[in-house]
Amino acid sequence: MNQSTKSLLSRRNASDSPRAKGARGESDRFYVWTLRGFAALFSAILLEFVYSIVHQSWPAWTHEGLTLLTGTTWNPANSVYGGLPLILDTVISTLVALLFAVPVGLGTALVLNFVLPRRLQTITASMVELLAAIPSVVYGLWGLYVLVPWMSTTIQPWLGRLSGGAWPFSGDPLGAGIMLASTVLAVMILPTIVAISRDVIAALPKDLNEGALSLGASRSQVLRKVILPSAKSGILGAISLGAGRALGETVAVLMVIGGNAQMPRSLFSVGATLASTIATEYTEASPGNVAALGALAVILMVLTAAVNAFARRLVRRTGALSS
């Protein structure tokens, strides 16, 4: 993949021969240094981005230390900065969203590749991808005014009755809360999971499908026992990319999760994620609180960067991401 024959500079040896020197060589050098200069500038911005957030959070880390990660109470008004409820809400809402989105996403990716006639594939895939085009504030609005009433009057009472009020369906059916946030997140990350796993599956050698079919395997056997296992690492990458999006999603979650930073007790509890807390408290924070919110930003940054780096490594190996 890195063997770019397009790279003009890979022919550097040829053009750097004595004959190529002179005015033309000078100009090429200017071109090269312009490219390098802008790459350096952008790298500097990236470093400044990381530095400024870490720098702002520094007082919180030296003051509070690990409490920022393990403390169970987040109450900035009283200068209590325990980040654990926020971290848990972020991670739990993402995991539950994956629970909804992964089966639907994988099924959709398989249908797009193997069941639909070729003419319908592109148009259907674009429709699924349109889900990613709808702004998150619109999902938030929809969640707030359509899903909250539906959850609190229909779904959650039903789940409560069905489980006898047992965990994780215990508590009052408020509508807003972790469960609703997960539902909205599932819709929002679905296009990511579908698009990447569709590419990963499409990048598999055709022989796998044809070979298995010719051996007499049924359609479902081919898909379940040959295609899915072969695409496993790429699909895991697709799921992780979706998880990365869900961890950092802000406004849609903020509008439907209830905005109450407390340790989660069940799927029905209201909560607050790292991102939603930064969004609501940042601009009105006192200097001490700003450092703690900066620490939340650092935690979120590390979390999403790690998940994304992991995901890209997996997807890159399948050769699907370059397409």
Binding site: F42, T304, A311
Partner: peptide, 20 residues
Amino acid sequence: GVEILSGIPSILLGVFAYIF
């Protein structure tokens, strides 16, 4: 680096622009 930036939540870019 560019790829990791594309996965960074947008709220953090907001925090950066706020500080910067």
